[in-house]
Design a protein around this nucleic acid. Structure first.
Ligand SMILES: [Mn+2]
Ligand SMILES: [Mn+2]
Ligand SMILES: [Zn+2]
Ligand SMILES: [Zn+2]
Lengths: 131, 131
DNA sequence: TGCTACATGAAAACCACTATCATGGGCGCA
DNA sequence: TGCGCCCATGATAGTGGTTTTCATGTAGCA
């Protein structure tokens, strides 16, 4: 049994916004956008909700170049990586079977256990390059 | 001409400590260790010195799981990646030619420019696994 | 329709890091 | 060796993202 999560309008608002935002966005940006749309929601609740969604694997989190956490609801529920635009946050989900294998081999060769890995590619997307 | 960097005992102290520390360490940990050894050095100077060394490519910086910057003087001056122990900061330098190529291909395929990438593997080293 | 435990959010704390600025000292030069 | 310029230092204060606190609100159940 998963821990009971209460259905509140704040949680719904965050979740729905994530559904239609294609880009990685920070908690503060998400909060601003919700206020702009007239949702009554506190910044604390946005942080907490994003944390919950992330813990439940419903959203992906990664750290922007500036070090702040950015969130996005991904298409794929599978493990995957990202190609992220540094300018606008647009992201492509990318697969890297060869990288997964390589990570495992490296770990084994050096006797490391409980492996995790971060593999992200940052750049400037086609649209932002054009602009 | 490169910008003149003055030889101070603080800078020397940080550099020498990095020479004999095999693990990734945060600025605060490095500061603590220097104070423990009786070096008179301020935290600000530690941050600044590490920043300088990083800018000059003399030390590698990466973000720990907790999001703080950790520093290490690496053997290799070439571009490389790391297998880092989550417990003690021990690190192996690893090469990933296949990953480099894959990153470039992905970027090109999606029209991204000005590419950078982060590829780090975290785990628990042999020593920490044994303990 | 209550009851109760969990959710909310304003305010304050936290924490890594950076900016400020008065003082110290490296180093080029006489 | 001594001067003096100017960068380096570091105590202090500030910044900005995130978390904690705690009084109040409300979802969900009987
Ligand atoms: Mn992966
Ligand atoms: Mn690389
Ligand atoms: Zn873009
Ligand atoms: Zn270890």
């Amino acid at each position: 049994m998963t821990k009971a999560v209460r259905a509140t309008k704040q949680r719904a608002a965050v979740s729905e916004l994530l559904d239609r935002l294609p880009d990685f966005r920070s908690a503060q940006e998400i909060h601003e956008e919700l206020r702009r749309r007239g949702e009554g929601i506190g910044l604390t609740t946005v942080y907490r909700t994003l944390q919950n969604l992330a813990d439940g694997g419903e959203v992906d989190v990664l750290r922007s170049a500036g070090g702040e956490a950015v969130y996005r609801r991904c298409e794929s529920a599978e493990h995957h990586h990202h190609l992220v635009c540094r300018r606008c946050g647009a992201a492509e989900e990318i697969d890297a079977p060869a990288v997964e294998q390589w990570a495992g081999e490296m770990a084994e060769r050096h006797g490391f256990t409980e492996i995790t890995h971060t593999v992200e590619i940052f750049g400037v997307c086609r649209a932002c390059t054009a602009a």
